[in-house]
């Protein structure tokens, strides 16, 4: 049986015979694969063999294989350079210059993300409704079943204008306005800017974008809320995403549900996950069956009609979807940030 040393010599010969045949880049690459390929390259196989070689042979053989490898690498490099330098006809036009593009502006990432949300709901037969950003206490709070002086208002920390005017803290007032002027069936989403008296930090800003939705009809149930929102979240985050509904409290819905999706970052595997805090779940939206008092406030009979509603922060959802650590990036309007999302 041939010794390892013999086989090294054999491989060297084989390479030296093959090398002069390689004239273009493609054949140089083939040669590289045949001799240096990670799995089946002949030199790589020699290294494998070396592992089980007897100790007395190992040192000498090891040196030889290494020398061979260095020689082959050098030769291949030389061949490759040669292949590129091969004589080519002079050209009038250098076709490898970059193409000429007309610059098309990029939409803001929040607009993009909001449009994606809108598209999903439009496909389910929802209409888009808008309303004023300077609202009255009635539409922003009272009609939504926040009694005056109720501590529930603390969660919707408000910027006040004067008298009963304030900056809307959610787009729910649009829901109230639509219910006041429309008869069921109602199926709408309300996107828009909302305002809270927040001290800016990575996940809180005094202004952000929200999309809320509302369905009112006969026979609408919590099961419908679940089915529709699950569909929405799968359309937005992917078919396989896990969704969970858990009880919560909002003055304007009863029963209320917070909706979580599984953490896209760690899938619940990282106890110190920055995104989900190790719970494996990320809160995405608030929802619930429209409170009967809210329906009464707009003269819709809660015995005859029922409804469900949801609200979601566009900014925070986009942060989660794109892995953006700070909300303020959206409003700094650094073009190096904004322009990335056109390619999303």
């Amino acid at each position: 049986m041939a010794t390892l040393k013999d086989r090294i010599e054999e491989v060297r010969k084989a390479f030296e015979e093959a090398a002069p045949q390689a004239g273009d880049a493609k054949s140089v690459e083939e040669l590289r694969t045949a001799f240096l390929g990670r799995k089946r390259g002949r030199i790589m196989l020699l290294f494998e063999e070396l592992k089980s070689a007897p100790a007395e042979e190992k040192r000498e053989a090891g040196r030889l294989v290494n020398e061979l490898k260095v020689a082959v690498v050098d030769r291949l490099q030389a061949l490759e350079n040669g292949a590129l330098m091969a004589v080519r006809p002079a050209r009038e036009i250098d076709l490898t210059l970059p193409g000429r593009q007309r610059y098309v502006g990029r939409p803001h990432p929040l607009t993009l993300f909001q449009e994606e949300i809108e598209r999903i709901f439009l496909s389910m037969g929802f209409a888009i409704e808008e309303g004023p950003e300077i609202e009255t206490d009635y539409y922003n709070f009272e009609a939504l079943n926040f009694p005056p002086h109720h501590p529930a208002r603390d969660k919707w920390d408000t910027l006040f204008i004067k008298g009963d005017l304030l900056l809307r803290t959610h787009t729910s007032p649009v829901q109230v306005r639509v219910m006041e002027r429309t008869k069921p069936p109602i199926r709408i989403i309300c996107p828009g800017r909302v305002f809270r008296r927040e001290t800016p930090d990575p996940t809180h800003l005094p202004m952000f974008l929200q999309v809320e939705g509302l369905v009112v009809d006969q026979g609408v149930t919590f099961a419908n809320l679940k089915g529709t929102l699950e569909h929405f979240l799968r359309a937005l985050f992917g078919e396989k995403v896990k969704v969970r509904f858990r009880p919560s409290y909002f003055p304007f819905t009863e029963p209320s549900a917070e909706v979580d999706i599984e953490c896209l970052v760690c899938s619940g595997r990282d106890p110190d996950c920055r995104v989900c805090g190790g719970t494996g779940w990320k809160e995405i939206l608030g929802s619930g069956m429209v409170d009967p008092q809210v329906l009464k406030n707009v003269n819709i009979d809660p015995e005859k009609y029922s409804g469900w509603a949801f609200g979601l922060g566009v900014d925070r959802t986009a942060m989660f979807a794109f892995g953006i650590p700070e909300m303020r990036y959206f409003y700094e309007n650094d073009l190096r940030f904004l322009r990335q999302f056109g390619a999303k």
Binding site: G125, N224, G227, T228, H231, F245, P247, E254, P255, D291
Partner: peptide, 25 residues
């Protein structure tokens, strides 16, 4: 109100046991 009691029933029955159904259009 009645809706408040329904919420209590739903909470303990389990939101996860309520079958998801797309809103009929």
């Amino acid at each position: 109100r009645e809706a408040d009691l329904v919420e209590e029933v739903a909470r303990f029955y389990g939101y996860d046991r309520i079958p998801p159904r797309v809103t009929p259009v």
